[in-house]
Amino acid sequence: MTTITSPVPVIDPYAPTAPASAWRFLHALNPLSKVAAVAPAMLLLVLVRDLATPASFIALAYAIILVGARITPRTAALLFLAVPVGVVVIGFGFSVWVDAALVDDTAPFLQIGSWTLFSGAVEIGFATALRLGAIAALALVGGLTTSGPDLVRSSIQQLRVPYRVGYTALAAFRFVPRFGHELAVIRAAHRVRGHHGGRGPIARIARGWGYIVPLLAGAIRHAERVALAMDARAFGAHPTRTERHLVPFRSRDIVFIALFFAASATIFIALFPWQPA
């Protein structure tokens, strides 16, 4: 029965985070301060072309995460498996596409038949991959230590996002596990009807297309009912509402942002990656 606690384990975006020990400080910071601190560095990284700068930022981000965040097996896998593998794969992936004419004066790195991969191309590829890796690593500082609902709350409290939009977002998080469950049922239902039997990507896409309307139609009808229930409970009665879950912006947030800016500036000044080669 659908009303009984769902049998499939689902991601609970509201799951209370276990209390962190005091020095896992990232969890105690305001979500916005973690975004604000890393954003300038992320934007400036777009403009660099060397290897050392992104590598330094990856090191910085990892150091902060390892000290300040609770490390679960999942995040450990992300940090030490997914990101490195991603960087290496993207590094080679990009180098293949580099215009050989630009780098044919460098030493060959790999030769297959008449095709040569020059080490210059590999360097350019890895510069790009490290840059993307650094941007992702910086995002993880906040991403791994912030829950969706807290981000919404601080957007309401500090950024003055209208609370009606914010609370719509909170309600939206509830839709996610529901979506997963509905999709599983719809897939089984279509399978039973022998819908588009057949393998291969084309048949898959055709099948997937068939799930969209039932899935969204069900979700939208559900959303309309939730809207009625929210209206009936005085949602939007006043321009503001009582807020019990304060996500304060404290002096420690300012300290964190200032320290991070200082560290970023130090890296950029020390390595100054924009000087003409």
């Binding site: 659908t2 009303t3 975006p13 509201y14 609902p149 609370y167 909170l170 309600a171 998080f173 509830r174 529901r178 559900h222 009912r225 939730v226 229930a229 929210m230 409970r233 005085a234 949602f235 939007g236 009665a237 006043h238 503001t240 509402r241 009582t242 807020e243 019990r244 879950h245």
Partner: peptide, 21 residues
């Protein structure tokens, strides 16, 4: 299911009261 907005039972009951300021 269609009457739930928040993440805990307590928040759920408090939802309307908070809306009423």
């Amino acid at each position: 299911d269609a009457q739930l907005v928040t993440g805990t039972l307590f928040d759920e009951v408090a939802f309307a009261l908070e809306n009423l300021l």
